[in-house]
Design a protein around this nucleic acid. Sequence first.
DNA 1: CTGAAAGCGCTTACAG
DNA 2: CTGAAAGCGCTTACAG
Lengths: 342, 342
Amino acid sequence: MRKKSKATSIDIAHLAGVSQATVSRVLRGSPLVNAQTRERVEAAVRELNYKVDRHASSLRTQRAGTLALLLFEDPTPDDSHINPFFLSMLGSITRACARHGHDLLVSFQQLSDDWHADYEDSMKADGLILLGYGDYLAYRGKLETLVEQGTRFVRWGAVLDDQPGVSIGCDNLHGGRLVGEHLAGLGHRRIAFLGDASSHYPEFYDRYRGCDAALQAVGGGMHPALQVDAESSEEAGFEAARTLLARKVPFDAVFAASDLIAIGAMRALTDHGLRVPEDVAVAGFDDIPMARFAQPALTTVYQDTTRAGELLVESLVRLVRGEAAESTTLPASLVVRKSSGA
Amino acid sequence: MRKKSKATSIDIAHLAGVSQATVSRVLRGSPLVNAQTRERVEAAVRELNYKVDRHASSLRTQRAGTLALLLFEDPTPDDSHINPFFLSMLGSITRACARHGHDLLVSFQQLSDDWHADYEDSMKADGLILLGYGDYLAYRGKLETLVEQGTRFVRWGAVLDDQPGVSIGCDNLHGGRLVGEHLAGLGHRRIAFLGDASSHYPEFYDRYRGCDAALQAVGGGMHPALQVDAESSEEAGFEAARTLLARKVPFDAVFAASDLIAIGAMRALTDHGLRVPEDVAVAGFDDIPMARFAQPALTTVYQDTTRAGELLVESLVRLVRGEAAESTTLPASLVVRKSSGA
DNA sequence: CTGAAAGCGCTTACAG
DNA sequence: CTGAAAGCGCTTACAG
């Protein structure tokens, strides 16, 4: 099927009996145009179902009207499984983009990819939204390159003092503290932590330190023998819990750095004959949709993804306009469910 | 921060000592270029970190190199909740696009929106991928408009005989039959169906009819008094199950048209004092990630989203190139878990 | 194999 | 308030 060739602004000009320049003025909303002229042009636009050609417009204005969302994961996960937390971020970012009148390009990247290059340099997007956990130290250098090149970007992640660029993140320290206080309040003192707890993973590390602070307040603290590294996946959580059990160091609660880790860990604990929460209390982080349906329902920390998406887009749009934008930390709140035994 | 102006093909031409046309030839992979010339140009490209301007290129070639994914939902759901099944489709479509060298624009639309207009007409995308359930009869007209206008599109959904355009869908009839056979094999004869069962929702209707066929094979059939409409959401499933219970018509199993409906329904059944699967067997459809974690784990039908995404993209790319593409039905397979009591 | 030139469809300073 | 014209950065037929 051959489609009939699209109408151009010249066709509209002919039909409305004005110059092509005037058509363009009307479509750009210029205030210079006479009201009656405007109406004639608008009628012609409707009649021919005309739409401004995006490429011609962008080539001329040097604005793409598009933002790119780069979701990176490292190492490569199973093809179909994206962290559900990021999927809900994706949802809110998509909606926020629509509200701000921008289109959204979505791409999955490996942390190892040359992702700074493609989108802005080829003018496909006016700015980049970076989403994904990974070794922070490994990609900090990339962020610096982006800043050097003048690329406009915002990222979801920990807000650190010497951060290159703009970050929007959750108050992981406070979130961790809420979990620590909650578990400590239930009498737990030996809290295991499943997830990396180093400056390579600042989000997880803050959650760890927040929990530690809560325990210190009651005369305790986190115990290194009760910490096991894990990336954010169910499999990693399952393995981490098994590693923990194999150490035979007693613990009465598990704080998983993410819900996915928590869900995997609960499976390992149950397999091992432990009851949650009777024998071990468990808490996660993120409040992904699955958390409510976990068995038992998972106590976790909620992050406002709708607000986060809105802030990411808003900040990026501001940067694109040449305005300043600041890193922001969003509040975290505790969601108590059965897994912690409260 | 002001970024230094981007290199253009003219800068590369100067640096490599060739004409701008030759630079373009090299970047388009033209076979006409001398090997040494090619190398000099490529060196210059690397040195200046040059990227072809997408808008200039697309304006000239009339090709966007971009596909648009329109995810529509009707009526408007809660801001953050997209059907997890579509999210996993989104994941596989994104990866498939990358494999095919296309960018992907993502947008959420209301079924009522004028979604056919925007993307292709403004040249933002070469073709459309349509994803979403909704009243089929209500948007069939839109599909016809798309065909008339020569818009290239593929959609995820039931493959019907007189379908406008290309569809990729799951074998819902067979999927429903698998569920019916499974439940019938467990001795159930009074199977309630939660979800619309009319030509407005062909996917759901096929699942219903497949189940009916399985029951007919053992001398039974679906009972209209045991069917309750529900859109695909947990809330709708909860309400539908309550409506069903209120009818006081006996049933021994529930086949929910989607996992989300099944999860909501199980909550209503449990609230009502019924045990799943001891008192009522439950099965869903989709095998969303949550299904494994539902309480009890949900028996359901798996659809291969990775393959579906690949096929959608592949078919659309074919249409964009002016080649033919055919509608395809993908196999469905039963995933037995605890909720059916097998 | 390479270069000069036209043109894709807009936007916007310039002139009136 | 409106029009004529230049130019955004490419691609590709045409000529050599």
